[in-house]
């Protein structure tokens, strides 16, 4: 099973991007399953997405990197057994470190063969968050295979370059893509990375 973890701090645009990615991959005949661990401001309409051909599982009541690790593993087993997706997308809570989710999956979910970690950073709040939540943002970025600088429609080009440079200093191996998930700006290069 291939796994895509879409992580990032609260309000960074994870759900918006997840829905966009899932729709676009489904449109090119990919079987997509979604595991949602966050009840955010933007709800995941499970029934609608099922009609669109996706499978949605929700994990409530905690964080999948901590007390609900068993739920995550059991949900992955269920998704594989019932749906056999081409790609399973997990949205952990914004307070999670994706490295901890990866550790749980690597330790207890042998059906997962490939894991891709995508971390969103909010360009409009990057300066404040990087000063105030340095350890969390650093850990999130350092665990990423792809760092997506989101909400670029809300900042100028110089700011985007500065954020990209900071991200590069924290994780030189990660690919960096600048987008606006909501305005659907520059999503194609990101999708090419995912396919």
């Amino acid at each position: 099973m291939k796994l895509l973890i879409i992580a990032g701090f609260l309000g960074s645009g994870k759900t918006t991007l997840l829905l966009e990615v899932a729709r676009r991959l489904t449109a090119v005949s990919q079987r997509i399953a979604i595991i949602e661990n966050e009840v955010g401001e933007i709800g995941i309409d499970g029934e609608y997405l099922r009609q669109e051909g996706m499978q949605v599982q929700e994990i409530f009541g905690g964080c999948i990197c901590c007390t609900l690790s068993a739920d995550l593993v059991l949900t992955l087993e269920k998704v594989e057994r019932l749906f056999q997706p081409d790609l399973t997308i997990i949205e952990p809570t914004g307070l999670a470190r994706p490295g901890d989710v990866v550790a749980t999956v690597r330790g207890y979910a042998p059906m997962v063969t490939d894991i891709l970690v995508l971390v969103l950073v909010d360009a409009t709040r990057y300066e404040m968050l990087s000063e105030m939540l340095t350890p969390l943002l650093t850990a999130q970025i350092q665990a990423a295979d792809i760092v997506v600088i989101n909400k670029i429609d809300g900042v100028d080009g110089a700011n985007i370059d500065l954020i990209a440079m900071n991200v590069g200093l924290l994780n030189a191996q990660a690919k960096v893509v600048a987008i606006s998930a909501e305005k659907r700006i520059n999503l194609e290069p990101l999708l090419r990375e995912l396919l």
Binding site: L95, R97, M132, L133, T134, P135, L136
Partner: peptide, 12 residues
């Protein structure tokens, strides 16, 4: 659950 150096730098 939220004051540790998991989230915030030590000066906070």
């Amino acid at each position: 659950e939220r004051a540790s150096a998991f989230y915030y730098p030590l000066w906070v």
